[in-house]
Nucleic acid binder design. Structure first.
Lengths: 235, 235
DNA sequence: CGCCTAATTGGCAGTAACTGCCAGATTGGC
DNA sequence: GCCAATCTGGCAGTTACTGCCAATTAGGCG
């Protein structure tokens, strides 16, 4: 049980000076790597949108990016990583934003803050839409994404539990349910957003979804919380 | 867009008499096929639980089941299908149960009925637990399952919409949100159930989850509905 | 400045899940 | 009992991905 999932993709090296935190790495090697990374990433995204994800073999990406297949796999452990890229960042920002919420904030409020923080990650509406579209229209990608999301949910469990009136160790399904519901609403919002070609704001849709799910109408004005499941309600 | 997903696995043949609906097929061929199917399925499940899903190559299953690899792939289009098997049945039962609900039943009530119907599908607690465990502990399987579930959700959309006060054609995220929330709660319930080694009833856990998500406490006694989002509330 | 070490790269072979094709075995209907 | 439809197995090929090894290259140091 608990098979240690191997860390995929290139992470080694960069022991010494490496990243100066300013994004301008000192050594030639690091600069070269960064360049190659960008080149691969751009080639991949271009080909994916041009011909579709499943229809684009790794070999082609490697060829057009000017690296060997073997090297490409050293940079990105899997084909999915070529699109996901900063998905790990997603998880980090999410948990960070939730942790930063004041202690009085209930689970719903904190989670909403996390969701909002993640939305702010996208560079532009256009790129987000393109990525989302690819994600929603490709079964294999969708599957991978959902899987990764599930892991985020597990990570969030303790964070959320302490904002609910739950005994920490207990096998209480409610924290999981709340988290999963938040993601469910985010999902519904994102899908609708894509269907509308990116019109409107995802967070508005999210609020609408949450309002439909929980009893409270018009949660938009006082977003994120409108009922029980806050700390100190029964203890 | 909308690449027609090829129907995988063996579906051909059986043009003529084939299935007499009683489960006792007439021709030798059909009997042989049924036998082979069972043999493969049992071998696969045994090996999967013994050595794990990812650690069990198709070649071994084929060998021990006494068929060629090629034939195995004709019976089951993918490795996943060896475990999933009647997952399609899942979707059928779900939609059927929801359709059978009276028109007055709201979305939540109807969906709960569907979930309950699906739970009744499992042969035994033990087998269900074993399958669930395998599913929850294997990343690739989890991903596939989530993907399939997403498709069910899309199928359910129209069914649920007509039980809500939504304009049919509108791009309203709320129906999606409700469906996704139901699955989210089912997920949380199933996970907790597995963690508890199958103790308790999944539907009880489901009710608890839904109660935690929606405002209403103690939804267990009057399950499935406790607030708005029923038909004829504003339309 | 040149050398040594360590990081990096590319190629090659191998695995695992599939898929198409073809030839041979089997079955079912007449 | 024969012919056609069906089924099966084997083989080759594709794609994602991994391990291994040899050749290159950058970095540090005397």
């Amino acid at each position: 049980m608990s098979v240690a999932l191997a860390v995929r993709g290139y992470r080694g090296g960069m022991k010494q000076e490496a990243k100066t935190a300013t994004g301008a790495p000192s050594t030639l090697r690091d600069r070269t790597r960064q360049l190659a990374t960008r080149e691969i990433l751009e080639t991949a995204l271009r080909l994916f949108t041009e011909q579709g994800y499943d229809e684009t073999p790794i070999a082609q990406i490697a060829r057009e990016a000017g690296v060997s297949q073997r090297t490409l796999f050293r940079y990105f452990g899997t084909k999915e990583d070529l699109l996901a890229g900063n998905e790990d960042r997603f998880g980090q920002v999410l948990t960070a934003a939730i942790r930063e919420q004041p202690a009085e904030a209930g689970a719903w409020v904190a989670l909403r803050a996390g969701v909002a923080a993640v939305q702010a990650l996208h560079d532009s509406r256009e790129q987000a839409l393109e990525r989302f579209r690819l994600l929603h229209n490709t079964a294999s990608l969708r599957a991978g994404w959902l899987e990764k999301r599930l892991r985020f949910q597990e990570d969030l469990l303790p964070l959320v539990k302490e904002r609910m009136d739950t005994a920490v160790g207990k096998t209480d399904p409610r924290a999981r349910a709340v988290i999963a519901t938040v993601f469910a609403c985010l999902d519904a919002a994102a899908m609708t957003w894509v269907e509308n070609d990116g019109k409107g704001d995802i967070m508005d849709l999210y609020d609408e979804c949450l309002a439909a799910v929980r009893g409270c109408p018009a949660a938009t004005s006082k977003p994120g919380n409108c009922g029980p499941t806050t700390p100190s309600s029964s203890s």
